[in-house]
């Protein structure tokens, strides 16, 4: 187990260090998310009586689309610089590689969320930094990264990889997005966690399901 966790940590450390130096994923995700917020801000400026009605959708759409950019790069850069085989040659269960990659994706998306939440508050004049909302965003992002990392590995060996990832990912992710948006809507109007326990349970169920399926299938996904 110690050996397994050592590999998970090694992959996470490597991704963080490379990202710290290049800022490739963060820059593309953050710029995309900010542009999405700006476009929605102008689009809804005149027509919405209460901006709390649109903020949940804006938040989750910005996170989902920006996140796809980061997830897409997770394995494409490994493949393009020829280092993917190096990871797969490690004498360890390949789910450790998956877990390391998934955690780095998860962390990158969380950092982008931390960047856009204050901007969302400024642009829409709605307080979104609420503990219950942060919890649902955290859990939804976990499911997003869990399934997105597997699909990213699956898409990397195909010719239409940039197109294929969102096409595969969003239909599967739909329950988490719907639950996230519904729960976020409630928290913005002052509802408590207990009021939206069912949505939270749904997200947790899908998080567990995605993680289990990813652990079981990753070895087959990355092998020829």
């Amino acid at each position: 187990m110690k050996r397994y966790l050592q590999v998970v940590w090694a992959v996470l450390w490597k991704d963080m260090r490379v990202e710290w130096r290049t800022k490739d994923s963060f820059t593309s995700m953050a710029v995309f998310a900010v542009l999405a917020l700006l476009i929605f801000n102008f689009a809804f400026e005149l027509n919405v009586p209460d901006k709390r009605m649109v903020v949940p959708g804006v938040l989750w759409v910005a996170v989902a689309f920006a996140g796809v950019l980061g997830l897409g790069r997770a394995f494409i850069t490994e493949k393009d610089q020829g280092s993917l085989a190096g990871l797969l040659l490690a004498p360890v269960d390949r789910s450790a590689i998956y877990l390391g990659k998934m955690l780095s994706n998860f962390l990158f998306i969380l950092i982008v969320e931390a960047f856009i939440l204050p901007l969302l508050t400024i642009f829409f004049n709605v307080t979104v930094i609420i503990p219950s909302l942060l919890l649902v965003l955290f859990l939804g992002t976990l499911g997003f990264a869990a399934v997105g990392t597997v699909f990213s590995a699956l898409a990397v060996n195909t010719r239409a990889r940039e197109v294929l990832l969102p096409v595969l990912l969003f239909p599967v992710l739909l329950p988490v997005l719907i639950a996230g948006i519904r729960a976020t809507s409630g928290f913005l109007v002052g509802d408590t966690l207990a009021d939206h326990a069912n949505w939270l349970r749904l997200i947790i169920f899908f998080d567990i399901l995605f993680l289990v399926v990813a652990f079981l299938t990753f070895d087959y996904v990355v092998e020829e």
């Binding site: 490379v18 290049t22 610089q81 280092s83 085989a85 190096g86």
Partner: peptide, 8 residues
């Protein structure tokens, strides 16, 4: 392919 990371 070198199986190495250019930014390390």
């Amino acid at each position: 392919a070198p199986l190495l990371y250019g930014d390390l």
